[in-house]
Design a protein around this nucleic acid. Structure first.
Ligand SMILES: NC(=O)c1ccc[n+]([C@@H]2O[C@H](COP(=O)([O-])OP(=O)(O)OC[C@H]3O[C@@H](n4cnc5c(N)ncnc54)[C@H](O)[C@@H]3O)[C@@H](O)[C@H]2O)c1
Ligand SMILES: NC(=O)c1ccc[n+]([C@@H]2O[C@H](COP(=O)([O-])OP(=O)(O)OC[C@H]3O[C@@H](n4cnc5c(N)ncnc54)[C@H](O)[C@@H]3O)[C@@H](O)[C@H]2O)c1
Lengths: 213, 213
DNA sequence: AGAACGTTGTGAATGAGTTCACAGACTAAG
DNA sequence: CTTAGTCTGTGAACTCATTCACAACGTTCT
């Protein structure tokens, strides 16, 4: 099965609304309910659900619980998919805190920082290790995803080491585009670029709005 | 002139390479230089520069300084475009720090938080105000852009107030899609969704990599 | 001067993503 | 049982973005 990138992002968003509705006791939803929440067309929602092979019923819509289960099969992390954070600076610590509080399904196995001040500290249940331990931790702790939150200068070096140690995916906050070999997936999340987009579009008369991505 | 969203993002990225090259004394670049850095095709770069009406010369490529100037005309913030941050929690403070250090061209005029502990404190040169001051600050300090870093529950309320006070653009970190009227531009930057994308794509065999957006 | 090379600018082709529009399906009401 | 109404599933149309491919051009070398 081949699910486009964009669709994954929307499924993740749908899931949040579905969870909320489920907790409110709602059992069915229509494509236009999800569409309204996300500011897209109902046709888009149906198309997305079609690509993951989930079908609803005319006149009753989609089953909230069933759809959540289906999306979960695709998106829920497997138990052997650990995360490692490189760079326990301000952004890195904010992420640790946020993930621990809001996303227990993504356990950060370890943090790495080259500041001796930080090494050995335990931040939100996550131990901070020295730079040199990176390779061992990835091999020993079933880590497949790396979050890169080091300064721009070091980001590519860090990424290279992670790749060599066998990482599968990277989420990068440093303002550089990481170069990785095929088979490793990188998502560069450049906040400064996003801010520049907002500033530009707020200046001229904007037409549309845009979600993450 | 109508510049697509995607192009703005790439221009912002090009600019970083151009600045680096300029500081290294380089005077011309070819489309393939920028393309290589960003992992895209040279044709895409030329197309982008075409849409902003910048032209190079065959055999010499583009003038680094001139191109930087041209992109700057489009992207550089105007002096009357102030920023306000709502929610001086962990992420908000990390942003304050980051913007102050790395992006002095985007001066954050004020922060707002409803935690009495934070109100009155000055964080990285930015004073934290009480919740109720929001409207006054926006009107008095030429603020056109809002950064939303409050919990998900409050995000839409905060956005509504910002919009009513006349904000033009929003950068939103809360995991909800903000609903704003036409004329206001919102960029939702959902880090959890990005992480879920990376996890999914790292699991199956990924093909491509993706930049922010 | 003329030829050879490498790059730009861009129309046209391709590709990806979104929306349209409607047949078929299901429900509820009469 | 039949009719009216609403929603799904989806082929086709459409829109937007990317890539191709090549003429035109500037530079350098002979
Ligand atoms: N703070 C923000 O809100 C923000 C926003 C956008 C982008 N970013 C980017 O995120 C990255 C981190 O930002 P930050 O504000 O947390 O910076 P920071 O300086 O607070 O933290 C960086 C941390 O990385 C560590 N580090 C440096 N080199 C390292 C290496 N080679 N190996 C391991 N650790 C190393 C440092 O010791 C420090 O603790 C930067 O690239 C920054 O541009 C930050
Ligand atoms: N920390 C991260 O790395 C991270 C990552 C992704 C998304 N987010 C999102 O960003 C937002 C902020 O995250 P955080 O980690 O900084 O949370 P936080 O709890 O540390 O900070 C939130 C701040 O907002 C303030 N606040 C709450 N309601 C307010 C209101 N109505 N008006 C003004 N201020 C108000 C609180 O006093 C607090 O200081 C959340 O929506 C979170 O989901 C955070």
């Amino acid at each position: 099965m081949d699910i486009p990138n964009r669709v994954i992002g929307r499924l993740s968003a749908y899931r949040r609304h579905l969870r909320r509705w489920l907790s409110e006791g709602r059992e069915q939803v229509y494509s236009h309910d999800l569409a309204t929440q996300e500011g897209i067309t109902p046709a888009q929602v149906r198309r997305d659900l079609m690509t993951i092979g989930y079908t609803g019923s005319p006149a009753r819509g989609y089953d909230v619980h069933g759809l959540l289960t289906r999306i979960g099969e695709l998106l829920d992390p497997r138990p052997d998919e650990g995360i490692i954070l490189i760079g326990a600076g301000r952004l890195g610590r904010a992420m640790l805190d946020y993930l621990a509080a809001q996303h227990p399904e993504y356990p950060v196995r370890a943090a790495i920082d080259n500041d001796p001040e930080l090494v050995g500290r335990v931040i939100h249940g996550c131990r901070c290790h020295a730079d040199g331990d990176l390779e061992d931790i990835i091999r020993d702790e079933q880590v497949t995803i790396g979050i890169v939150a080091v300064p721009a200068d070091s980001a590519q070096d860090v990424a290279d080491r992670l790749v060599r140690a066998g990482i599968r995916g990277l989420l990068n906050f440093a303002p550089v585009r990481l170069r990785v070999p095929a088979g490793v997936y990188t998502q560069d999340l450049d906040i400064a670029v996003s801010l520049e987009k907002v500033a530009f579009l707020a200046r001229g008369q904007a037409k549309a709005q845009e979600t993450h991505e």
